[in-house]
């Protein structure tokens, strides 16, 4: 299984290590051609505005959208969650705009308000240690978006079809359970509900 990590900026190494620790092959993605052989793609934490500039200049926006349309799973953490969202609170335009949700950036405050907390996540039997850094959260989950975790009333982890997104940084802890969840989505891709399937429900 080949899993790409978008490597324009941010916590690339940490995600690659998590992918390898789970037994898959990690591929660094810097240009459109790097997407060709992948089974899934991770959008890492970093600065979403900087990543977007680099996506545009590397002419990656359409290839990333096509990758999403092809039904191959994508996992966005923090800035990656912002990239996936269909709408961004207070901004006119979204980035990839592939996951039906509205995300608010920096919604827990500035760096001094960044925190660690243990989360209860649907499907995991023990709490997950989460690191929130100037984190966003999901203010609106669209139809078919499955909420997997809320923290203090805010949605911080959700799944929709082939997309998985979270507010926090699983890549900064040694806990690979969310990466395993994502790799499970990649492995069982044909079983994942599609957006069309959701809209029929």
């Amino acid at each position: 299984m080949k899993i790409g990590v978008l490597a324009l900026q941010g916590a690339v190494r940490e995600h690659a290590q998590a992918i390898q620790a789970c037994g898959a092959e990690a591929i660094v993605v810097k240009k459109a051609g790097d997407l060709a052989e992948l089974d899934g793609l991770v959008l890492p934490g970093g600065e979403s505005t900087a990543m977007r500039r680099l996506i545009d200049r590397a002419e990656l926006l359409e290839p990333l959208r096509e990758f999403a349309d092809s039904g191959k799973p994508m996992f966005g953490t923090c800035a990656g969650l912002v990239l996936l969202a269909k709408e961004i609170d207070g901004q006119e335009a979204a980035h990839l705009g592939v996951m039906d949700m509205t995300v608010a950036r920096n919604s827990f405050g500035r760096q001094v308000d960044s925190f660690e907390a243990d989360l209860d996540i649907v499907g995991l039997d023990a709490p997950f240690p989460a690191v929130f850094i100037r984190a966003p959260h999901i203010v609106r989950a669209g139809e078919g978006v499955e909420v997997l975790c809320e923290y203090e009333g805010r949605i911080v982890l959700a799944r929709s079809g082939a997309f998985l997104g979270c507010s926090f940084h699983p890549e900064l802890t040694g806990d690979h359970r969310l990466m395993q969840l994502f790799l499970g989505m990649v492995e069982n891709r044909e079983l994942l509900p599609t957006a069309a399937h959701y809209s029929k429900i």
Binding site: L8, G10, G46, A50, I133
Partner: peptide, 12 residues
Amino acid sequence: VKRGMAEMQKGG
């Protein structure tokens, strides 16, 4: 949280 913030700046 403090070191992680710097990790998010990498490559930037």
